[in-house]
Computed example of a mutant assay.
Amino acid sequence: MTFFEAVGGEPTFRRLVDKFYEGVAEDPLLRPMYPEEDLGPAADRLTLFLVQYWGGPSTYSDSRGHPRLRMRHASFRVDADARDAWLRHMRVAVDSLGLPAQHEAELWSYLERAAYFMVNTMDPAEPAH
């Protein structure tokens, strides 16, 4: 059984992403990074990416090609503050799922690594991780 199946499939990832974007919609640092007035398309892209990453259908790559996450986000200033804001909203979203501890830890570990990977602007006062 894949992680995708073990946590409940696409509905679980939709709930995760919907909860995450509730926070992003109100965040003064992150909201400007989403040029579309409606966050729905961004939410769909993130959902499809996570579904595919965790073992679900390859709809993301079928429609958008290789994820190229850093390249797709290169035009945005992603510094430690943006990373931390993203992680705060994602933490609330992960907690809202009520996953078993092992699955929660695996999901959170990936999301945390991904957030650090996306940083493309270093504050001179912050050490690299």
Rank of each mutant, 00 (worst) to 15 (best):
S63I: 07
A82S: 14
M90R: 14
R68I: 03
D84P: 04
A74S: 13
L87M: 11
P57I: 01
F49C: 10
H73A: 03
S61L: 05
V92H: 04
G56H: 12
H89K: 07
R77P: 00
A85Y: 07
H66K: 03
A82M: 05
S58R: 13
R83V: 03
G65E: 13
H66F: 02
M71F: 00
M71L: 00
F76T: 06
A93E: 05
L69D: 01
W86R: 08
S63E: 15
D79Y: 08
Y53H: 14
L69F: 00
H89I: 02
L50K: 09
A85T: 05
R91S: 09
R64T: 03
Q52G: 13
P67D: 03
S61H: 03
S61Q: 15
V51F: 09
P57C: 03
M71H: 06
F49E: 06
M71R: 02
S61E: 14
A74F: 06
T59Q: 14
S75N: 08
R72W: 08
F76G: 01
R83D: 06
G65V: 09
M90P: 09
D81T: 09
F76R: 10
L87Y: 07
D62G: 13
D84K: 02
G55M: 11
T59I: 14
V78Y: 09
Y60W: 13
D62T: 10
W54Q: 10
H89V: 05
D62N: 11
D62W: 01
W86S: 04
D81S: 13
A85V: 03
P67V: 07
L48C: 12
D79N: 14
R72V: 03
D81K: 15
L48M: 15
L50Y: 10
D79P: 10
P67K: 08
Q52L: 08
Y60R: 09
V92W: 01
V78L: 14
L69N: 00
D79G: 05
H73D: 09
L48T: 08
Y53T: 07
V92T: 13
R88E: 14
V78C: 07
R77D: 11
R91V: 02
S75M: 13
G65Q: 14
W54G: 02
R72P: 06
V51K: 12
V51M: 12
R83W: 06
